[in-house]
């Protein structure tokens, strides 16, 4: 359990650092893939709703601290994403290659719509279709492409961790 917590926190911190620095160079039409959402849904699919929620919460709080204007908004959003994805998709066949692509696209769609609703619609911005075409759909596609690689990496890592934990904890 301790190894899992340490590796997960390291992954999330590394993700924040990469996303805010190196990944800025791979923006296409000013859109950056949402790698933190891929990590959240990977944990939700592989480990279930509780860990999905925990990972989402921690990752969101990190974003809040460095790039948010209010503490807790992204934390709550990430936690909801993790919890709902874990609740709905934990019992699906996790070795499937198509599954993470579809789920990450759906998760990005819902996540970005909530940000639009709270941050833009409430401040009087009604150009929803502009955002849909120029931001949400490109980000869905870009994130879905990235999810193929990142999900496989986390899948292998999870296998290794579960193998390590097998003798110490009951898994099912």
């Amino acid at each position: 359990m301790r190894t899992r917590i340490i590796t997960t926190s390291l992954i999330l911190i590394l993700n924040l650092i990469l996303q805010s620095t190196l990944f800025q160079a791979i923006r296409i039409a000013n859109i950056i893939p949402n790698t933190s959402i891929i990590i959240i849904i990977s944990y939700a699919i592989l480990r279930g709703r509780t860990e999905g929620a925990a990972v989402g919460c921690f990752s969101g709080i990190l974003t809040d601290i460095f790039f948010g204007t209010s503490f807790g908004f992204y934390g709550l959003l990430g936690m909801l994403t993790g919890y709902l994805c874990g609740r709905s998709f934990h019992h699906l066949y996790r070795e499937n290659y198509l599954l993470p692509i579809m789920i990450s696209a759906i998760a990005v769609f819902i996540y970005e719509n909530i940000i639009y609703l709270t941050g833009f619609l409430f401040s009087g911005n009604t150009e929803y279709f502009y955002f849909l075409i120029h931001l949400i759909i490109p980000e869905m596609v870009y994130t879905a492409v990235f999810s193929i690689i990142i999900y496989r990496l986390l899948f292998a890592l999870n296998d290794w961790l579960e193998d390590k934990e097998k003798y110490r904890y009951r898994l099912f």
Binding site: T50, C57, T69, S70, F71, G72, L76, M79
Partner: peptide, 26 residues
């Protein structure tokens, strides 16, 4: 774990409402 998650969610919701738009030092 369920209760902890609910408490955490409520805490984050309250915190995000009360800290919105505030500028200050960390």
């Amino acid at each position: 774990k369920k209760q902890i998650l609910i408490v955490l969610a409520i805490f984050l919701l309250v915190a995000s409402v009360f800290t919105a738009g505030k500028t200050g030092n960390a």
